[in-house]
Design a protein around this nucleic acid. Structure first.
Lengths: 238, 238
DNA sequence: GCAAACCTTGCGGGATCTCGCAAGACGGAC
DNA sequence: GTCCGTCTTGCGAGATCCCGCAAGGTTTGC
């Protein structure tokens, strides 16, 4: 059995290497990659079926890497190992998981024991292992109950990018009024209406919504980055 | 000589501990704290004069911790050890350094050798050691040349928080038109006017400015968080 | 077939934002 | 003193945003 580790930070990489060795004695080869792009190349070149992948990487995002890896080989087993349980990441991951693929999501704050268990479950048993804390988010995120619809998330991203109502309408093939409707819906859910302490005076809803979303971790830097590059692409075609 | 290490991540904490031991044989006691609050308490309780401080921490930000530590004891020597060289962090740090205090800023990506050198320079020689990459930012950030004025940064934060022009005017004791002037200035510097590919159509400048600032790392999550709590405080006094 | 819930769209009005034009205040350079 | 650059402020116009009201369409369940 061969395992590929893709992780930015040398310390974490070494730790992972050690953990894999300890948890999986049946593993006879551990390879390390220092960023997403290198990870993709190694995965393609040597056809790794078991990958441990960091989500936050400077050069190439874990989500981006996973997307291309899974596109070329959907049965690859991937364990995501991440610092945070931001909704933006969780949503990103669950968007790209192929049907029936075995994957896992473990936080870096997890104990050695949890990590070991996850490694064995995924790579030996092909089971999905999702960290408790992340699981909670996933439910809300996908189950719509109290969480965000795709439509709402989409428009949140659009205003975050700085698109006008008109531009959003063109991009999403909607009328102006529909865009504004969705915006109201978003504002409702984010509860951005009145300033907390004050009686009179309100926020600029559009900007406030984005910031509240960031503070609540519905949106984060890498989600913005991804959205921005998608926007650029759309503009190019537009 | 006693040294306090304040760092979230157990791996990095252990690495730092090791590095301190190796670089400073004259150091006879190394203490570890797991987050900012604990770091503050330990610093206060035992009067540490030499502290290695992580900037990104979940519980209490390194910048916040440093602020209170320096308030109580301005001659404390602090080495900031950080993942990123975001302008938001650099600006945050240089805002709170007391006059004449010895401090350092080293990136986590630095080599063992660089870290060791920095440790000795700061804690033994009381010299300031700023990482190359960070230094560049600092020049631009403070020297105004091509960088951002305090006024511009301030208004950037205000619109990021979702304040209206009127609210900003009240908060900063300016007229409406002055606020709008500063906004135009900000928009100029961030170059948010026309969509790149397109001929017609524009951005929503207000939202776009915030996102561009985030993408350029003039603003980041922890800066937003801090600004939000300051806003809440201001609203409370209202 | 009908009702209820949801989404989409149009219209219109009031608030807000963006910004050109222009006048005054202040400080530094000569 | 005088000139110049920077910052502040007022006025006003046009664009955009926020949103109530209301009509039509689709889906779901009875």
């Amino acid at each position: 059995m061969k395992i590929l580790i893709v992780e930015d930070d040398p310390l974490h990489r070494a730790y992972l290497h050690e953990a894999v060795r300890a948890a999986l004695p049946e593993c006879d080869s551990v390879t390390e990659a220092e960023h997403g792009t290198q990870g993709e190349e190694l995965a393609r070149q040597y056809g790794f079926e078991n990958i441990v992948l960091d989500l936050q990487m400077a050069v190439r995002n874990g989500i981006e890497a996973a997307r291309t890896i899974w596109k070329e080989r959907p049965e690859t087993r991937i364990l995501f190992w991440s610092n945070y349980s931001d909704e933006a990441y969780v949503r990103g991951v669950s968007r790209i998981v192929p049907d029936g693929a075995a994957y896992g999501y473990v936080l870096k704050s997890a104990s050695d024991e949890r990590l070991k268990l996850a490694l064995r479950s995924i790579f030996i048993e092909s089971q999905c292992v999702i960290d408790r804390e992340v699981r909670g988010l996933q439910q809300r995120s996908l189950g719509q109950a109290r969480g965000f619809t795709d439509a709402e998330y989409e428009i949140l991203v659009d205003i975050a990018l700085g698109l006008t109502d008109r531009a959003i309408a063109r991009r999403r093939h909607l009328s102006l009024r529909s865009v504004q409707n969705r915006l109201q819906q978003l504002y409702d859910k984010l509860e951005v209406y009145h300033l907390p302490g004050q009686e009179e005076g309100r926020f600029n809803l559009r900007s406030r919504a984005v910031t509240v979303a960031m503070l609540r971790k519905l949106l984060n830097y890498s989600a913005l980055e991804k959205a921005e590059s998608e926007l650029q692409e759309w503009l190019g075609r537009g």
